[in-house]
């Protein structure tokens, strides 16, 4: 962090005379840098109009757009059960939930847009497969209980990750996260409630619930990212106060939260090494399959191809609608200009 200095190319170019204009730009950048440092140190918000280092901007765009993409791709596994939800009430709640995810995608794309990257650019990055999204969504939602497990474990992990982000140093991101966290905590409750109902239902339902938890537990723990010693971007993000806690700290916090919740559900977590460690005041948990994780992250997840193909098909099928809407808006604007001229 301390080694990071603002790039003052305007004055660094060799052999050129320092013009008054270049000097002014350099002064502005230096002032901007000082103010940025001050905001970070004093735990204040950086706003879109503020000067910020390029890497801070890039890191944020990457993180916020990845989060937005995760919301969008995350609509697919849950959407897979809307038409088959086993009661009308569950169907309504699931529809509302998937709609919320779309809304989260919108807030987050908007937050990223304040950093100068357009929604279309971000769509394009997702479409071409350049952009990443949470690898958990490359797993299938096979049974109704998976909808419960996604709510309880996946949204639960997301909240654990996201609550500290409400204090992220970048204002628009932090503020978007406040609203998202409120809705996510509602989602987690509905997931827990689905599993609770199943685990107190018929033997088959209970088995369905246990099976879903068995499949989602490991990938949910991996949502916090690789272990701290293998997470290259974490330290800088923490110094910039975008991220507040390390991957392993958040993962521990999540494990500590879900163990009693699993007990209340009457379901077991598939980890023989899981036990309370009195000395640490935390639950110890076993090693995760990081080979699988890195394979899924690199795009060879069980459903990576399907998720991307689904997204692309929706974009392709809708292209003519977006073109029509744009053409119509342009014609309307033209007509408005025409009538304004007539009035004038």
């Amino acid at each position: 962090m301390a080694t990071h200095t603002p790039q003052l190319h305007a004055v660094d170019a060799p052999g050129e005379q320092i013009t008054a204009e270049a000097q002014r730009a350099a002064d502005d950048a230096r002032l901007g840098w000082e103010r940025f440092q001050e905001l970070i140190e004093q735990d204040k918000r950086v706003e879109p109009r503020d000067w910020m280092p390029n890497n801070y901007r890039k890191t944020l765009v990457r993180q916020v757009s990845q989060h937005a993409h995760s919301e969008i791709i995350g609509m697919q596994p849950e959407g897979n059960w809307i038409t088959r939800a086993p009661s009308l009430k569950r169907k309504a709640v699931l529809m509302a939930k998937v709609q919320d995810e779309a809304g989260h995608g919108l807030y987050l794309y908007s937050a990223a847009e304040t950093l100068g990257t357009s929604r279309d650019q971000m769509y394009q990055q997702l479409y071409t497969g350049q952009a990443k999204y949470s690898s958990i969504f490359n797993y299938p939602a096979r049974t109704w209980a998976d909808i419960g497990a996604i709510g309880w474990l996946v949204d639960g992990a997301a909240i654990t990750n996201q609550v500290p982000l409400c204090r992220a140093s970048y204002g628009p991101y932090g503020r978007a996260m406040v609203r998202i966290c409120k809705e996510e905590s509602f989602h987690q409750r509905q997931g827990w409630e689905i599993l609770y109902t199943l685990s107190h239902g018929t033997e088959e339902q209970k088995q369905m619930a246990q099976n879903a938890v068995d499949r989602f537990y490991g990938p949910a723990l991996q949502m916090f990212g690789p272990p701290d010693d293998e997470s290259p971007n974490s330290q800088q993000s923490m110094a910039w106060k975008i991220k507040r806690f390390s991957n392993d700290d958040l993962r521990q916090r999540f494990v500590d939260m879900i163990v009693p919740q699993a007990e209340a559900l009457g379901l077991t977590l598939p980890d023989p090494d899981l036990k309370w460690n009195q000395k640490r005041g935390h639950y110890d948990y076993g090693d995760l399959d990081w080979e699988e994780f890195f394979s899924v992250v690199k795009g060879t997840g069980p459903l990576s191809h399907q998720r991307l193909a689904h997204y692309r098909a929706a974009r392709d099928d809708g292209a003519w609608v977006r073109e029509a809407a744009a053409a119509y808006a342009a014609k309307q604007a033209e007509a408005d200009r025409g009538s304004a001229l007539l009035r004038a």
């Binding site: 959407g79 529809m95 709609q99 779309a102 919108l106 689904h310 098909a313 929706a314 809407a325």
Partner: peptide, 8 residues
């Protein structure tokens, strides 16, 4: 849902 021409 998840197949519409635009997020909105």
């Amino acid at each position: 849902i998840s197949r519409a021409p635009e997020l909105e």
